[in-house]
Design a protein around this nucleic acid. Structure first.
Lengths: 160, 160
DNA sequence: GGTGAAACTTCTAATAA
DNA sequence: TTATTAGAAGTTTCACC
C-alpha cells in the first residue's frame, strides 16, 4: 500500500510481464542487463505496493462458445436501489462488469452470452431484478480491444 | 486451432491458473492428484488449441493515477466510416475497448483517464475524428468487476 | 491418454558490496 | 539498492505403462 515510484526498469519489467506473466525472470534480467534477483525484488515491491494486483489468463470466449457481447443500460425506478441492483447483477456470471453511471442510464453493464437466445434470457433476468424499470440493449457487432501495453506506456510517460 | 474437449481436469487447471497464472504446475498436480507432467501437457494443449490466448497482469490503475472511467457512445455521420473511426479509436491508448454496436450508438467505447480534465481531452479527440457526428458520455461512478471464475464455471457446466 | 524420474531451468533468500 | 551465489523449487522431456 506504500507509495512507490516506478522507474524505467520497473516499467520494462511490467512491459514484459504484461504480455506474458510467465516470462522467466532470467529472461527479463538478461534483456535489462540486471540480475534475476533484482527482477524478483522489483516485482515483489510492485506486488506489495498493490500496483500489480495479480495475474490472469486471457481465454478465448468465442472458442468456448461465448461469442455474444452486449452492453445493457439500466434505468432504475425512482426509489433508486442502486446498491441492491448492483449486487443482483454481480450474482449473474454472464455480467462481466457493471458500472453505476451518470448520464442516461443509472447502471450500465456488459453481458457475455452464447448467442442471441441466451442473451435474451440474461436480459430478462436483469429486467426482473426489483427496482429495474427498463433496459436498453446494445449488441456488439465487433469488438476491438486495445493493447494494455499502450495504456501502460502512456501512463508511464506521464509519470515521469 | 483444433477442436478440443475440456474435461473436469482441464477445468480445474484453468480454475487455478485464472486466479494466478504463476501457480506452480507442481501445486496444481498435487491438488488434482496427477503428475506435473500431465498438467504441463494439458496446459500446452489448451494453449495450442487457442483456448488459452495468453496471460496478463492485473494492474491497479487507480494507484497509477488513472481513476476515471467513462463510456462514450458515438454517433457517426450518415456516410458511415465505421472502420476508419474504429482504427482512429484504437490509436488512442486511453480507449481500452471499442465496439461497433446496434442500437442508439454506432460505436461504443470505454475510456480510462486520470481525471475529468484528462477525460475531456480524450473525448474531444474522439469528437475530432472525421466521421464522428456526436458523442454521449456516461461517467462511471462505481465499477464492479465480476470474478472471471464465475463465468468460467458457468461456461464449463454448460459444456458438459 | 498418464506416470515418474532425470536433466534442465528458474526462483528466492541470504550474504556481500 | 543491487549483485552474486547456491540450494530449493519448478518445468519439461522421455521411456514406459
Amino acid at each position: 500500500m506504500s507509495k512507490i515510484k516506478l522507474d524505467e526498469v520497473d516499467h520494462q519489467i511490467l512491459d514484459m510481464l504484461i504480455d506474458n506473466t510467465r516470462t522467466p525472470f532470467t529472461d527479463i534480467a538478461k534483456k535489462l542487463l540486471i540480475s534475476a534477483g533484482t527482477v524478483h525484488v522489483r516485482v515483489k515491491k510492485m506486488e506489495d505496493a498493490g500496483i500489480i494486483q495479480g495475474s490472469s489468463l486471457t481465454l478465448d470466449y468465442v472458442k468456448l462458445g461465448y461469442a455474444f457481447i452486449a452492453y445493457v443500460g439500466i434505468y432504475l425506478e425512482k426509489t433508486h436501489q442502486t446498491k441492491f441492483v448492483m449486487e443482483r447483477l454481480n450474482e449473474i456470471p454472464n455480467i462481466t462488469v457493471a458500472h453505476v453511471t451518470t448520464g442516461k442510464f443509472n447502471i450500465f453493464c456488459k453481458v457475455r452470452a452464447k448467442n442471441t437466445k441466451h442473451a435474451k434470457e440474461i436480459i430478462f433476468m436483469i429486467d426482473d431484478i426489483e427496482g429495474v424499470s427498463r433496459t436498453e440493449t446494445m449488441i456488439s457487432l465487433e469488438e476491438s480491444i486495445n493493447d494494455k501495453k499502450r495504456l501502460m506506456h502512456s501512463i508511464f510517460n506521464e509519470l515521469n
